[in-house]
Amino acid sequence: MIEVRLFATLRQGREKSIMLDSKDFSTPGDILKHLDIIPGEVSILLVNGFHKTLDEKLEDGDVVALFPPVGGG
């Protein structure tokens, strides 16, 4: 399984943590499509705590964390 942790506004209408079958998702990009999140809605993408890109190859047991952009002042 892959655990997806969503932060702040990405949680709106979704769960805080989502478990997905690793056989169905090979990259974070696949997960974004599944969750109906467009890439522009994600600022920081972590896999197992490390900053990665949308095409990172995922493995069973990975934890993907997604943070929305924060841009105001």
Partner: peptide
């Protein structure tokens, strides 16, 4: 560049008093 990759935008324009 990492925090704001090209194409990223923020939708929530609200700001509550304790955030700043």
């Amino acid at each position: 560049d990492i925090l704001y990759p090209q194409g990223v935008s923020f939708r929530d324009r609200s700001v509550l008093s304790f955030a700043p």
